[in-house]
């Protein structure tokens, strides 16, 4: 990937080099290049605008602090994806601890979500959801286990290949296929009543 700044094309490899030298314009270019992509992944996982913006900031600041450790074994984009996923899952754990938010274990891959405990506290979603369709999407995504949702979001939003998803999430290729398969199977079950309702 490349983009121009000061009328010059800068590829990711050069961008990393400049970042490691501590160039501030390179950091600005990095933020500008990846901000929307990171936001969309964060939002796909958290379904919350404000928290996703915080996650975007945390991701870039972590990159700023640790760019010296980046050896280039993976691409810059994959590294950013990995940091974003970790931040999102940490965010989810924070909410679970704070409000006992409806949560599906990250270890669960059978697609069976836990029953939603009733709570009067506003959840991160209820603050942003308004339209019925949006709510249906949010509810359906929420019912997926965290890891399955992450894989699904990478595939559907970012169009990443199975290999790229495996690199970004640190799981095996077979596990990516399996999680994607279970995510879609679960979504089909969730969406089935809605489809039938529409057909009536």
């Amino acid at each position: 990937m490349s983009k121009t700044i000061q009328n010059r094309i800068v590829h990711d490899e050069e961008l990393v080099f400049q970042l490691q030298r501590g160039d501030e314009w390179a950091f600005q270019l990095l933020v500008r290049r990846f901000r929307k992509k990171i936001f969309s992944i964060a939002f796909g996982i958290t379904l919350n605008v404000e928290e996703s913006q915080d996650i975007v900031q945390e991701v870039f600041l972590q990159v700023y602090r640790t760019i010296g450790n980046f050896r280039g074994d993976a691409s810059l984009s994959t590294w950013l994806h990995r940091i974003t996923v970790n931040r999102c899952l940490n965010w989810k754990r924070r909410w679970v601890r704070r409000f006992k938010w409806p949560h599906v274990s990250t270890d669960s891959t059978d697609g069976q979500p836990a029953a939603e405990p009733e709570s009067d506290l506003p959840t991160p979603e209820t603050r942003v959801v308004s339209a019925q369709t949006r709510q249906q999407i949010d509810n359906a995504l929420k019912m997926l286990p965290d890891q399955a949702r992450t894989v699904f979001v990478f595939r559907e939003l970012d169009g990443l290949s199975y290999e790229e998803i495996a690199d970004a999430t640190g799981i095996k290729l077979g596990t990516v296929r399996s999680r994607l398969f279970h995510a879609r199977r679960r979504l089909k079950e969730i969406l089935q009543p809605l489809v039938e309702e529409e057909e009536k």
Binding site: S40, S52, R134, I137, K188
Partner: peptide
């Protein structure tokens, strides 16, 4: 159903973005 859901999700994220 899955294709429509994926499209809705992309629209939803775009709206948020």
């Amino acid at each position: 159903a899955i294709a429509a859901f994926s499209q809705d999700l992309r629209d939803r994220v775009q709206q948020a973005t």
